[in-house]
Each structure stands twice: as C-alpha cells, then as structure tokens.
Design a protein around this nucleic acid. Structure first.
Lengths: 367, 367
DNA sequence: TTCCTTGCCGAAACCGGTTTCGGTCCGCAT
DNA sequence: ATGCGGACCGAAACCGGTTTCGGCAAGGAA
C-alpha cells in the first residue's frame, strides 16, 4: 500500500541498461540471432527481423558501442583534431561548427571525440593514437593545406576521413567545401559595378588551400571585368588583425592606392578599420572593403563589415554526414559537396568617393 | 634476399596492436595476472609487478579503454556538453578551453567527448545518453547557473562532475573558478584611484552564478572606497554587444551620468564603444571602461579594452585534472581551486576628463 | 522416395580486457 | 610431523556484443 517511486527513501535502483541478453531472453531467441537481426544480416527471416527490431525499440535497447567495438573495431565516434599553435583562425567558427557536427552525429547515434595538437608532428601522433585507442573511427580534417600531410598519414593507417576544404590533389578524398572562389569573384564584380577601377586583394596564408582558391577567384573576377592584374595589388597576405592593418597601410601608401580592397578573411579585414583610422579616412567611403567568413565581430564594426558568410553549422553537419557514410563504405568520389557563401551586405562597401589619384593626395595631405 | 619494408608493394601489414594476451604469452604469465599487476592489485608480488610493467612499456602495450570499459564501466573519457541556444557566450574562449582540457586529458591517457544541446531538456538528455553509452565517465559543467539543474540530474545518475564556476549551493561539488568578484572589486578601486566618483556597473544575465559573484565584487568595491550604491547605477544587465550598447546609452542619458562603467563581460563592454560613438564621446577620456574576460577582440578596439583576463587554457587544464581525480574517487571537497584573473591594462580607462555634471552638459549639447 | 539445396536459427567461439575462485607453496606455531 | 594461514598466481567465468559453424526442416530435382 506504500506508493512506489522515489518516496521509498532508498536510492532508486540505477535501472540497468537493457542488454542484448535481456532482449534475447524476452524474445525467446539466441542472442546471436538477435544481433544478426538488428544488423540486417541476410540469413534472418524478414518476419523475425521485424519482430526483433520492434521489440528492441519498445524495450529501449541501445547497443553499447564499445562492446561492439571490441569485435568490430568501430565505435561510432568521429574524430576531430584541432591545431592550437596556428594563428587563432578557426576560433570564431568553432562553436557553430561543433554544434553542426555533434547535432548530426547525435542524430545518427554517433559521438564526437576532439583532441588538440600544438605542432605538426604531434598532429599526426594524436591521430594515430586516437585510432589505435579506437576513440575515432574516422576524422574530419579542418583547414586543409595545399598539400596536407594528414592525408597520406591517414591513408597509411587505413583510416577514413573527410576534408573540410579541398586540397591540391583531392583524388580519392571525400570533402566538403564552401565556394570561396565564387565569393571572391562576385566581390570584384560588385565593386566594379559600384564604380571602383582599382581593386586590391589581401589573401590568406599560402599554405592553406582556401587561400589559393580565393585568390584564383579574385583574379578571375578581375579578368572578367577586363582589369589587368598588377602584382603589387594582390601580393599582400594577412591572417590576423595586425597583419591586415599592416597590409592595408602598405596598400594605402602606394603612389596610386586602391579605392577598394577584397580580403580573404574577416579578421584581416577588421585590421583595415584600424589602418583607416590611422590614415584618417573612412571605410565604406574613401575605402571600400569586402571580405569573407562572416564572423560576428564584423557586425559590431563601424560601419558593419560587408562579407561573404560561411555557414559553419551547416558545414559541420554535412561533414559529419559525409564522414559517416564514408566509414560505412561509400566511395570517396561520391562524397563531395560544395556550398555557396552568402553575401551579407553591411556598410563597408560603397561607390568610391575619390579617384585613386585624389585618394593619394588626400592621404598625403593628411600625413 | 628481397629487402623487407614498403618496397614489397603489398600493403604493409597494419601491425596489430599488442594485446594483453601477447604480453602474457611473452612473460609466461596468465593474462589475469598481468591485468592485476598492471592495475596494482595487492595480491601480486612486487617483483613480478615491476617485471610486467617494464615489459609492457617495452612492448608498447596500451590497454584498449573500451575493452576495459565493458567490464569496469569506465572508458577514460571526459564529457563536455555545450549549449548552443544561449547568446554566444563561451564562443571566444572555447578554443583555448578545449586545448587546455584535451592537453591535460591526453597526458593522462584520457580523451574528450563533446556534444551540444539546444535546449534545457535536451541538455539533460544528452548527458544521460553519454553516460548510458559510456562515452563519458564524468562531465565538466561549463557556465554554472545560480541553481543548476545539471547537478541534481548527474547526482541521480551517480555520475561524477566538476563545475566550471561555483554555484548557489556547491556543497558536495568539485569546482574550479576564476575569482571574478576580486577582479570587479579591484576595478572599482582602480577607477577610484584614477579620480572617478560616479561609477556604474553593467552585469551579466542573472541566471549565471558568475554574474552574481561579480556584482557582489563590484558592490564590495564601492563599499570599500566609501561610495554609496544607487540602484540605477548597477541594475543594467547585458551579455551581447547590442545589449551593452543599449545599457551604456541608458546610463549616459541619466541626469547625472557615470564617468566610468565596470562591465561584467567584454562583449557587453565592446557595445559601450558603439554607444560612445553614438553620443560623440571617447572611451578612455570622457568615459572610462573596465571589464572582464580577455577576449581577443578587446585588443583590436580603439582604444584597447582594459580588462581582467581569464586564462581559459589553464581553466581547461585544471578542470580536466580535477575531474579525473574525482572519477578516481577523491572527495569533492578536496577538489576545489580558485585562480585569479589578470589585469590587462590597455587604453579604455583613465582619469575622468569631466565631472558627471559636465559630462551631462556635454552629452546634452551634442544631442 | 531419395538426395540435395536452401532458408533459418541455435550454440559456441571470439574480441580484449577484468574479476572471482581456488590451488600451490611456503613459513610458522603446535 | 602435522596443521594452518597467508602470499602469490593460474584457470575460468564474465562483460556485451559479433561472427562462425553446424543442424534442422522445408522444398525442389532426380
């Protein structure tokens, strides 16, 4: 007559997981049979397969991935190794990216193991260790280099992976990427439409493949509107705020400075704001800026940064999905996706207030 | 006569892991004995224990955590569940924080499993699931609320955890925290020393425990220098750039505006820069600002943001260390650490250029 | 009818560890 | 000499799954 439940005072029994043995007993089948039924082996009658699956669902049975792993070698976990020694590149995206990966993983009953490495050698070691310890069945490789050592290393280990970003030779690789080259090409077209006739480019570090693609996009944009392509207007590189500031100052100090700059990354583009303050000109008027990434800080700047936004949440989601399919055995060639970046127009671009020559005068007189 | 190695053309054998059986065979011992020796059971002679350990080291034996886990229930992995629905709070710290956690975990042969949740209910579900699937032996709980539902839920599950931040009732909890209250108190003292006599405070969201602590610190700082504590100067709250801007405008529009504002978070403090632009005054001169967090964007602002920097890398490291010890059975009461924040002096604080009354005049004439 | 497949499932081995249970061997007290 | 308890280790069970192997019954061909 005493009501059941937590009123008993004692610790409620930690209600053990239901195991495959429980399920087999309940069904009156051998546990091997249950296992094969759940995994869809062909030597199980369709009727009993259904019966098993339904009962498993009803009893809330969930196989213990580690118990499966000891036999199969796979534990339904995807690996992600971050570099911590490089300029804090991925920082702004990381949170959204993780959300995308884990959401997709979770939906498929997978989990995410993350690790970090502080150097190139450590990087490969960490990957090796995770597969040896079976903490990762495969990897998402963020920030692909033009030629990436991780690819060969993982191939040697026989470990599946999917690239975030393409690479120099992506033969046999699965990848997801966002079309930065298209964004850069469009940025040039847009600035040309606004009336700019001297447009500079500040790229990313040459080791990264995205930097190469975006630069290609920029140059193709120039060619498309019939501009020539003077090296001094496209040789700058910057990955940080400070480098972006320096690159902008360098460009402004040219005899004939550009009236617009396309940046490969937002972080560098924000440095242009500091440079503009240094020289007493205004972003969006004397100097137009368009960049790429879509980091939140771009919205706080004054004026807001016009940029091509990459959807990191979506990227994480797709990468996780592709990797899981890759691990399940699909061909790498069938696992490639390219998504567009989205233009977020804020205030950093506009018609040129001055010609390049007038801008040069203005900058010299202010000095 | 054919040289061995990769010249053979065939795939080099994936050199199997060395298992406990290999080790036992090699030593001429039973595998149970080897297991007990490695785990330091008392019924193994010290001499053979040493012999086993040395040989294990030499052969590069590493127990497969999942194989251990199936019997012991633990897999040497620490869990971290991030919220993705709240204002992008932890974003800036995340990268460093993860680096700290994984570095420590890695050193102890542990790994990190991360997941995300988009709501309160999902949050608890995800924790439960990770425990049931044995993907996490315990959790680091970031961003503790004043009263945090995760605590009771994990206690009910019997799962160890360690808080990042203290909480309303931390009895029986292990935690690591950074002394935000001390930082806020020092900020007031510093502004007082500079000559400010009317100092406002913009706090964080009331649900978070850090917000309560920092506000306490601010008020204790006021009391210490003998100021009274008018509610209109400390009732603002802001967690985002936009909210910080609005809060600052509200304060500047008072009949007697403050000449200095202490912010609980950098993100909100950066909003003050926008507000200052709106009103035509300068941060660091007409309005001083000191805040807390140490996000990198603070350095790019003009003038640079003076802030108390929290060392996220260190925090992650300590939290991982504490959690591992907790899981190994140490008492929660012995696992508590408090670290100081470090003042990073940049340009946003200085002697007041105007009195509050003069500032009010100035703001009104500009309007 | 007989033989041979084929479909379907049970039994048992297996994966790599941990833990329980006994069984020697030894020293020591009786 | 006998009995006894403790130190130390081997053998086997166990954890929760997967996979191999073999057996039984039904169905088709001879």
């Amino acid at each position: 007559m005493v009501p059941a439940g937590r009123l008993g005072g004692g610790a409620t029994a930690p209600k053990r997981r239901v195991t495959i043995n429980d399920l087999a007993d309940d069904l009156g089948l051998a546990k091997g049979t249950v296992s094969r039924a759940l995994n869809g082996h062909p030597d199980i009658a369709e009727t009993t397969r259904l019966r098993v699956c339904r009962r498993a669902e009803a009893m809330g049975y969930r196989p213990l991935s580690q118990a499966q792993g000891i036999r199969t070698g796979r534990t339904r976990s995807i690996g992600l190794v971050l570099r911590t020694d490089l300029p804090n590149s991925q920082r702004p995206f990381l949170s959204d990216f993780l959300a995308g990966v884990t959401r997709r993983a979770s939906a498929e009953h997978w989990t995410l193991t993350v690790a970090t490495a502080a150097s190139e050698e450590e990087l490969l070691d960490i990957h090796r260790r995770l597969v040896e310890e079976r903490k990762a069945d495969g990897f998402i490789l963020p920030r692909t280099d033009v030629n990436d050592t991780r690819i060969e290393a993982l191939r040697a280990l026989g470990t599946p992976f999917v690239l975030f970003g393409r690479t120099g030779d992506a033969a046999g690789c699965a990848w997801f990427d966002i079309a930065g080259e298209t964004a850069m090409r469009q940025a040039v077209a847009e600035l040309h439409r606004l009336g700019h006739r001297r447009i500079a480019y500040v790229g990313g570090a040459a080791r990264y493949n995205f930097a190469k693609l975006r630069e290609d996009g920029f140059r193709s944009g120039l060619a498309h509107v019939g501009f020539d392509d003077p090296p001094e207007l496209r040789d700058r590189r910057a990955m940080t705020h400070a480098e972006g500031r320096a690159a902008t100052l360098w460009l402004l100090d040219l005899d004939l400075p550009p009236t617009a700059i396309v940046f490969a990354t937002d972080l560098a583009a924000l440095g242009a704001y500091a440079a503009a303050r240094d020289r007493g000109i205004h972003i969006g008027r004397e100097l137009s800026v368009i960049s790429y990434d879509g980091i939140p800080e771009g919205a706080y700047a004054e004026p807001g940064l016009t940029t091509y936004e990459a959807d990191s949440l979506h990227a994480g989601d797709r990468l996780a999905a592709l990797l899981i399919r890759r691990i399940r055995g699909e061909a790498a060639e069938d696992l490639r996706e390219l998504a567009p970046a989205k233009l977020v127009r804020r205030g950093s671009d506009g018609p040129p207030l001055l010609t390049p020559a007038n801008l040069a005068d203005r900058l010299r007189s202010a000095a």
